[in-house]
Amino acid sequence: MLKIKNLHVAIGEKEILKGLDLHIPNGKVHAVMGPNGSGKSTLSYVLAGKAGYNVTKGSVTLDGKDILSMSCNERALAGIFLAMQYPVEIPGVSNLTFLKTALNAVRSAKGLPELDAMQMLKLLKTKAKELGLSEEMLKRAVNSGFSGGEKKRNEILQMAVLEPSLCIMDEIDSGLDIDALKTVADGVNALRSENRSMLIITHYQRLLEYIRPDRIHVLNHGKIQRSGDASLALELEAEGYKLHA
């Protein structure tokens, strides 16, 4: 259960989020839609703990734990995962080494034993295959030279492997063709579960045809302006965001 109360966030002197409230119960998928510059990416970064975003007021808890006092990696270990709009390319670090290090960090935080190299490889191969990622891509450097679609699928692969309790997806549909969009959406849908909540950030209704949200929120001027069920997306698609400007 994610609870955001009256969240105010500034970058430097500029206030971006101005009193945002959002509750996502376990097992639910919520979507946040909004025009460019409305604060969507700021919301995702501030939840993940990126430096440079100053929380000036408000609180955020995940399953009752205050996450704002945690460092970025403590939040990941507490179950927060952010699938990024622009996954970072890391030359020289193999996807395999990275996933192995991350999974063992998450497992030991959960009190689970670390996986050995063979168990890890087997798990990663299975998950990668489900997402249409080749074994060769596991050996390549993290996101280096990956196409837009491969980068997004690699994000979902990490999510599938790390099994977070809160999945935040920041415009995972950007730059995807129809087939890749379907693969990514299938990957996300496979992860829907009773004890996992999801926050999907997007501009477009199209993604939400593939991942049906339980609830949709319209973010503009740093606040949730309106909330509704899945049909709100269709209305926004037809009318645009001008009603919420």
Binding site: S71, A76, V88, G92
Partner: peptide
Amino acid sequence: DENAVFYLCSRGLSAYEAKKLLIDGFVRE
């Protein structure tokens, strides 16, 4: 690259592990 450090930390690696991995990646080739 601060973005790379953030990316790795957001997957559960400590800042120390993230930096170590990036330094290793720098000389890996």
